[in-house]
Nucleic acid binder design. Structure first.
Lengths: 340, 340
DNA sequence: CTGAAAGCGCTTACAG
DNA sequence: CTGAAAGCGCTTACAG
């Protein structure tokens, strides 16, 4: 008899819920219920199902499950790059959280291209993800697309004027302004800005310059633009520009701690001391900022707070709660360390 | 009339293929064909469909599509960590390639846990991914699970004895051996090994030690174990151990270039010169290895070759080709730079 | 080149 | 606590 049941599961196709049900002697509906919520099934029945799952080597088809339930248990995460990314800590935290609760992550690499970002958003929507977590600017026509899909859309790291969904981040305009004040208060007179390519970094730069001039910092600061991902290759070029200036800048403000690290290494290799001959500031308070020698003066953004708020919103949305389209300002603070 | 058609698309649910078909005046089968392969549909028909898609704001349901076609157009990528990962370049390359060909990436973070890896593999199989690209060891019972699923399974970065699928990597045993020979040939006598937690790194370490003793390098090398992700925090502790030894080691071999970078920064902060007072070697030839000051002597592994081979296998498998369960050895080579 | 229809493998009211 | 059945939104032989 048991042998006959075995024969009911041909080996040339993946076992289905029905195969499990047949072996367990219940309906596929009951198996489905047990798999999704064991408590609502009688204990003895559950035991038989468990055995059957094991026996036939059942692996649920999440495509079918998602289609039927219209919950994909998948969240899209869109970031520019993987290497030396200021977002790695946040993404890592969220991914682990998500995985722990049975949700998988679709990773999208946008670069700095709005077109690629839009394409990835469309791909995510096609997969009917439960949420999209995005770090970059999106095309104007996407606002309507996102809105109509009713998909939870969360922008992190910045606070756009009129976001199509949630935004969890901080004001880059304010950060640029405060950076200018900080630099001035430390007595530096000739700042040099190494700005990573990207709308936010440029926002900070412009705001820095405006404030610098407003508080009488003097002439317009020098600066340069570098691609992301950002490290030594760019740092070397940027440092060369710094050196070429006469008088040389006395402080370099970088778009990321990785860039700052690169500038420090370059400066020291050139025989300069940091911050004695040249001060350097980072951005983001990545793990390395506190561990480099010298430790890096930077702007701390509470990544774990962002990750936590994102997860909270995703969870509440998953529980059916209506998420208002508001913003959460997690702020930032300048951390003075050795490098500036 | 046209208004009547508009009414056929209620705004309280996402538009389906049928909505598009209705507006275009064709069957949903034709719309499906057009979307998946425009050439097989008459041009005029295609034009009408294009307009209809636009008009109703259609976004295909990839869950339904995947279920019907049993091709999810999704590939799972499993790595230990995101931060300072030796795999970032490879993953970034593959992700961009995949995205360009309409395939999305499911990202899984395994840490060094086999249990988490196995769980992520099951999740990937549940999503009926077209392939799983994995970087770590897997549980023994997974071999059968993977085999029975007939899913393309590709292990990268190493060459296991009896892989459950494809393997594209190199021999860590050989690398450890060659490292020992290299270090000896450079005249170093007191190596110190900073081994990242993980089976491969340990394989290299053991092989290094065996060879070191075989060629009469002398006593057993000192060493320490660090967690991944690996940088300054660990480097600091490791460097402290190095300093404490008397006589002090003359070369430190690190499990990654990031670790090597950390050791170099620590050593220089302590007033030592690299490689004069202490030589340092990395592993992996990450971008930073050639850009640090001093540049880092390391073991180059051709990541773009690995990415390329993976993509080739994935594509061929997607085209219906039968992939043999063999291995591709991409080799490695030691690159002598300034740090050792 | 196109349509009618079966089928992919689940979930979930509905009923008991 | 459990089952029968409809339905999720596509794809794809089959037929014309």
């Amino acid at each position: 008899m048991s042998d006959e049941l075995d024969m009911a599961v041909p080996s040339d196709r993946a076992p289905t819920l029905d195969d499990v049900a047949q072996r367990a002697g219940v309906s596929s509906a009951t198996v489905s219920r047990f798999l999704n919520n064991p408590k609502i099934v009688a204990e003895a029945t559950g035991e038989r199902i468990r055995e059957a799952v094991q026996h036939v080597g059942y692996i649920p088809n999440a495509l079918a499950g998602g289609l039927a339930s219209s919950r994909s248990r998948m969240v899209a995460v869109l970031i520019p790059h993987l290497t030396d990314s200021i977002f790695n800590d946040i993404i890592e935290r969220m991914t682990e959280d998500l995985n722990a609760s049975g949700t998988n992550v679709m990773l999208g690499l946008t670069g700095t291209s709005v077109a690629r970002t839009d394409e990835l958003i469309r791909a995510a929507l096609a997969r009917r993800v439960d949420a999209i977590i995005s770090t970059g600017p999106i095309g104007g026509e996407m606002f309507e697309v996102i809105r109509r899909s009713r998909t939870l859309f969360i922008q992190i790291w910045e606070l756009p004027e009129d976001p199509p969904g949630m935004a969890i981040g901080f004001s880059h305009r304010d950060a640029g302004r405060d950076l200018a004040r900080f630099v001035a208060s430390r007595g530096y007179r000739r700042p040099f800005l190494v700005t990573a390519d990207g709308s936010r970094a440029k926002l900070r730069r412009d705001s820095f310059i405006a404030e610098w001039q407003a508080i009488g910092g003097g002439e317009e600061p020098h600066g340069t633009l570098v691609d992301i991902p950002s490290r030594y290759g760019h740092a070397r070029r940027a440092f060369a520009e710094v050196r070429r200036l006469d008088p040389m800048p006395d402080v370099v403000l970088c778009g990321s701690d990785y860039l700052a690290q690169g500038i420090i290494v370059e400066a020291e290799a050139a025989g300069l001391t940091v911050p004695g001959d040249l001060a350097v500031m980072g951005f983001g308070n990545s793990r390395i900022a506190g561990e480099m020698r010298p430790t890096i003066t930077t702007v701390d953004v509470d990544g774990s707070r962002i990750a936590q708020e994102v997860m909270s919103v995703v969870r509440r949305h998953g529980a059916g709660e209506d998420i208002p389209h508001n913003s959460i300002d997690v702020g930032y603070r300048i951390i003075a360390r050795e490098s500036a």
